[in-house]
Design a protein around this nucleic acid. Structure first.
Lengths: 233, 233
DNA sequence: TCAAAACATGAATAGTGATTCATGTTTCAT
DNA sequence: ATGAAACATGAATCACTATTCATGTTTTGA
């Protein structure tokens, strides 16, 4: 019991793969896919997809470290070795899932808010679109949360992309006089936080309150705040 | 490749300990601490504390599954075996950390909002207290996020306690006419979401914006909402 | 139709780290 | 001061699974 309080070194920032017996590094260093190749046929595409979908379900249900490759391939209906035809390792499927989640959410939000010029109205439609999406993809939602530790870069990229888009949307609306002036960066994070919390309430807490009710209540808060006797037109 | 889409069974809800060789269950079934005892002396208390603190740092830095008992005890400055004198296993320290986080945050919030009868003012003080707290305990903050998978019960307990307290505080304020009428449950979750997101921005994104600025901007949003031309007294 | 390319298999390998335990050392009550 | 209770040690055990690989099977293109 001596030097307490030492700084914990993050040591490679996260998980590392098993050691390979002989690392023959002497090549010009460039290519990055000794394994984990894109399928070339429809059959391969279907198998890869099956594994990815199975991974979503298994990792979403058990969490990253409890989800074994064996469980994933069993769920996908193929042999363990097949997994490594399409993915370099466990981390790689996970990262793909996080990316997919990002793509899908962005698409959902884009569609939900398309052609809505008013920011306050867009805010409501976006919240509704988000809550509908997470209700339809509870596994992906839980997966994002694990990314903070399993793939920090993907985690940050996921939220950064939303934060930046949100911030500039608010800045535009502010310039157009559609919303109250204020710090758009902080407000973007705050609004993302609201959406995230309500999504979690629905998915993790399995709250059954109809989405429309939740959206109405939250949107009232977002528009008018907590203050009493607000101006009602 | 056959029965796809099978339901993934959560299988014991989370991690399970290694199998013990011979389980001699035949006793009346009641006691639950074959290991993991409370220290009886000051020396033991200090060691237990050292391990808990080390676990906070190591798990906070590397995440639960990457944090080995060896790393924790090394950080604590004791032998691996010592760990099992005070904790039944890895999960147990983790759960303690989540509980401790809950206790500390609750205390911080109670102190920050003590003797502030007005809800809107309390809201601001509470947000400030929370952000100050997470800045001082970044490790604990990250740990909560992992609890969703490592110890779901603790995760839910942590947020439930806040949600319920928050909800009833809002309900009281609403009854007293201090805030706008509305769904207090949804609003409680939304406000928690704001705090959580801003805490994350500070801790995970290491954003350096002064806390006071963040609090002012967020509080303006919380009080007045996004709508333009709000009533300014 | 046939060789090559793609896919698929699952048993074997092997790294890892949680947990135990037989053996000391320290502290406490009397 | 002294035996018992507490505490501490760290090497050894051993379950667990990610990953590999030698060997088939299926699909594709000409």
């Amino acid at each position: 019991m001596s030097e307490r309080r030492r700084q914990v070194r993050s040591e490679a920032a996260s998980a590392r793969p098993r050691k390979t017996k002989a690392v023959p590094d002497a090549l010009p260093a460039a290519e990055d896919e000794p394994r984990g190749i894109q399928p070339k046929t429809a059959r391969g595409e279907a198998t890869r997809r099956a594994i990815l979908d199975a991974a979503e379900r298994v990792i979403g249900a058990k969490g990253f470290s409890e989800a074994s490759i064996g469980a994933i391939t069993r769920e996908a209906g193929c042999a363990q070795g097949t997994f490594y035809i399409y993915f370099k390792g466990k981390e790689e499927v996970f990262s793909e899932l996080v990316l997919e989640m990002g793509r899908l959410v962005r698409r959902a939000l884009t569609q939900a808010t398309a052609n809505i010029p008013d920011r306050l109205a867009a805010e409501k439609a976006g919240l509704r679109g988000f809550l509908d999406f997470v209700a339809a993809h509870p596994d992906l939602y839980r997966i994002i949360q694990e990314a903070l530790f399993v793939d920090p870069a993907a985690y940050r990229a996921y939220f950064s992309s939303f934060a930046e888009g949100y911030r500039s949307a608010l800045a535009d609306a502010e310039a157009a006089g559609q919303i109250r002036p204020g710090d758009c960066d902080v407000r973007a994070w705050a609004l993302m936080g609201i959406a995230r919390a309500l999504g979690e309430r629905a998915v993790i807490w399995e709250d059954r309150t109809p989405v429309a009710e939740v959206v109405d209540a939250a949107h009232d808060l977002i528009v008018h705040g907590l203050q009493p006797r607000g101006d009602k037109p």
